[in-house]
Amino acid sequence: MVSSEPTPKKLTTIEDYKTFLDKFDTFMLDCDGVLWHGNRVLDGVLDTINFLRQNGKKLVFVTNNSTLSRANYVKKFQKLGIEASEKDIFSSAFATAVYLKEILKFPSDQKVYVIGESGIEDELREVGIQAIGLTEDNGTMMNHSDFGQIEPDATIGAVVCGFDLNLNYRKLAKAFMYLNNKKQNIHFILTNDDSTFPAPNGIFPGTGSLAQPLIHALKRQPLVMGKPNKPMLDCFFSNYHTDPERTCMVGDRLDTDIDFGRNGNIATLMVLTGVNTEEEALDPNQPIKPSYIIQSFGDFAKAKDA
């Protein structure tokens, strides 16, 4: 099906950069693939961030990465030379905690079983929700005799799945047991469903891919928090109260970042330093198109002396 959306405008000149920046007050910035690859900040990004802030622009770092809490993200930002506070960071882990606490009114006497890393557990505990799984099941091998020890647990009220470098069969077995218990209404939440994520030396399987064994076995779709889904969007606007017409989502992925902005009826800017290519964005059969395309977010620094 040929897309009916307007062809994205490619920003290539300093005049293009200045005209674009004048249109917006708030920039929602994806991180991996936009600001950095791994632990390397992309060229020009630090200068661009400083330039935008000096001109009164609000920057909110919006990431599907659930491995770090906002507090630990601040530490990472500091190591990379980027100034940021917790209120500047909006992650899928934080959105998940807010959603459980404020939307689902998660009972204080119940626990969340987490497949993921410390970011999810830290954010859940920050809002007063008990989280288990990381300490108990990381690095624990499983034998056939262990199946008899995995049982339903009436104290578990939700299973949250995020990116997990230590994913193992024990975690999947426990999560399946809890979610497959017909006597309890256990919430099944995925922090994001990114199929892949960018690393310095290529693309690797993401959270959405790691969760497929549970989805397939349960024949059940989880509530997905991260971009481009509505729960994340609702949480964002309720937290920041930005003017959608003066807000732009900046990202490297069509199916998450760009679709996220489209779902919120805000402008989108795609950078070419991450997952998707310009050819993919301009493909007539591509239904998700950005409003604008730029080679790199760092290119905006070229406008600071113009």
Score class of each variant (00 low, 15 high):
Gln212Ala: 13
Leu218His: 00
Pro231Asp: 02
Ser209Ala: 13
Lys227Tyr: 09
His216Leu: 15
Thr256Tyr: 02
Pro244Gly: 01
Ile203Asp: 04
Val224Lys: 02
Thr247Gln: 02
Arg262Cys: 07
Asp255Asn: 12
Thr242Glu: 12
Ile215Ser: 09
Asp257Gly: 01
Pro244Cys: 04
Thr247Asn: 01
Phe236Glu: 12
Val224Leu: 04
Thr242Asn: 09
Pro228Phe: 09
Asp257Pro: 08
Leu254Val: 08
Leu214Arg: 06
Pro222Thr: 05
Gly202Met: 08
Thr207Tyr: 05
Gly264Trp: 10
Pro244Trp: 08
Ile203Ala: 07
Leu233Thr: 13
Leu223Thr: 10
Arg262Met: 13
Asn239Leu: 15
Met232Gly: 03
Asp257His: 09
Ser238Arg: 14
Leu218Ile: 00
Asp243Cys: 09
Asp252Cys: 01
Met225Trp: 01
Asp234Ala: 09
Leu214Gln: 06
Asp234Thr: 11
Met270Asn: 01
Arg253Pro: 10
Met225His: 02
Ile215Leu: 07
Cys248Thr: 06
Gln212Met: 15
Pro244Ser: 04
Met249Gly: 09
Thr256Leu: 03
Met225Leu: 12
Asn229Thr: 10
Cys235Asn: 12
Ala211Ser: 11
Gly226Lys: 02
Pro228Cys: 01
Leu269Asp: 05
Asp243Glu: 11
Ser209Met: 05
Val250Trp: 04
Thr247Arg: 00
Arg246Leu: 03
Lys219Trp: 00
Pro231Ser: 05
Pro231Tyr: 06
Gly206Met: 07
Pro231Trp: 03
His241Tyr: 12
Asn263Arg: 15
Ile258Cys: 02
Pro205Lys: 03
Arg253Gly: 00
Ile266Met: 15
Asp234Glu: 14
Pro222Asp: 00
Leu210Gln: 13
Asp252Arg: 08
Phe237Asp: 06
Gln221Thr: 12
Leu233Val: 02
Ser209Arg: 02
Leu254Ala: 10
Pro205Ser: 09
Pro213Ser: 10
Met249Leu: 08
Thr242Met: 00
Leu233Arg: 14
Gly264Asp: 03
Gly251Met: 05
Asp234Val: 13
